[in-house]
């Protein structure tokens, strides 16, 4: 029973971070209509940024959030403005083909990281990296708990922004009907640029929060892009609430897979759930939550 509860706790905490990764991707999916296959690589950039700040300047990763999020916000806006938006103006390029551009961006980001930092594994050792709190026999990793709290805060903030502000409503309007949004006076290109920035900033937060308990190398982006993709599909493409469910589901699936089947099968369990959802609930959790 203790093992079960411990696994549950670990899964949910990790799921919170996954949700943060997934929300960014699903937001971009909703507005742009494409999957951003450079999502994990953007996270990788944020992780290296956090590493540099910690290693050379001694800045705590949680403080580094205030650098990594704005930086990635700008990087995301730059990518959308100068690399993706110009593609949309060429009529002979199908919008779906922008996905190929994101694959290219992912490769470039990875190789730049390899060029600067080599392929060596890096990590950030903080005083709280291995600290844990105990409730009875159940341990709560301090870093994961803080990460979970930040993830919850950022998600709540994002929801408030999307529901309560004109800019947030404009983002939702573009994702629901681009042409009608333009007729209402919304500059959809500008909205796309901002949305890509927000998505990048969210995944940057996830990367920075993950660094104290994870290791870092240039190719780390790929697996996280795949995870983000799985979360987005689990949640139902473009649904932010669904992405939270998707993230927690993937976190739980991986945790239970690791505990009860074996560490090596962690990713497999996640992907099996993915296939099951595709087969039996093709719309993802959006079909259940309707949001």
């Amino acid at each position: 029973m203790e093992v079960f509860v411990q696994t549950l706790v670990a899964g949910v905490l990790k799921g919170g971070l996954y949700a943060l990764i997934g929300i960014g991707m699903t937001l971009i999916m909703g507005v742009m209509g494409i999957i951003n296959l450079a999502h994990g690589q953007m996270m990788m950039v944020a992780m290296y940024l956090t590493y540099v700040l910690f290693h050379y300047l001694g800045i705590d990763p949680y403080m580094a959030l205030f650098v990594s999020m704005p930086s990635l916000f700008l990087l995301g806006m730059f990518i959308q403005r100068f690399l993706l938006n110009p593609l949309m103006k060429v009529e002979s390029i199908l919008p779906e083909n922008q996905v190929l551009m994101t694959v290219g961006i992912a490769m470039v980001l990875t190789e730049i990281a390899r060029f600067i930092f080599t392929s060596n594994y890096l990590s950030v050792q903080t005083s709280y990296s291995t600290k844990a709190w105990y409730v009875g026999e159940i341990s709560f990793s301090a870093a994961l708990c803080v990460a979970f709290a930040f993830a919850a805060l950022l998600s709540a903030g994002l929801f408030g922004f999307l529901v309560k502000t004109d800019l947030g409503r404009s983002i939702r309007a573009v994702s629901q009907d681009n042409e009608a949004a333009q007729l209402m006076g919304i500059d959809s290109e500008r909205i796309k640029i901002i949305t890509m920035g927000i998505g990048a900033a969210l995944v940057a937060a996830a990367g920075t929060l993950l660094l104290p308990i994870y290791y870092l190398f240039p190719d780390i982006g790929g697996p996280f892009t795949r995870k983000a993709f799985v979360i987005t599909i689990l949640g139902g493409l473009g649904s932010t609430v669904g992405a939270i469910f998707g993230g927690v589901t993937l976190g739980l699936a991986e945790a239970f897979g690791a505990t009860y089947i074996g560490m090596d099968y962690e990713d497999m369990v996640g992907l099996i759930i993915f296939i099951l959802v595709l087969l039996f609930l093709p719309g993802g959790f959006k079909r259940l939550t309707k949001v």
Partner: peptide, 18 residues
């Protein structure tokens, strides 16, 4: 061409952004 997942009130708000 309403925004289907937004409430009636929100749809009206989006009509008056400028």
């Amino acid at each position: 061409r309403l925004f289907p997942d937004m409430t009636v009130e929100e749809n009206l708000m989006v009509g008056s952004l400028r």
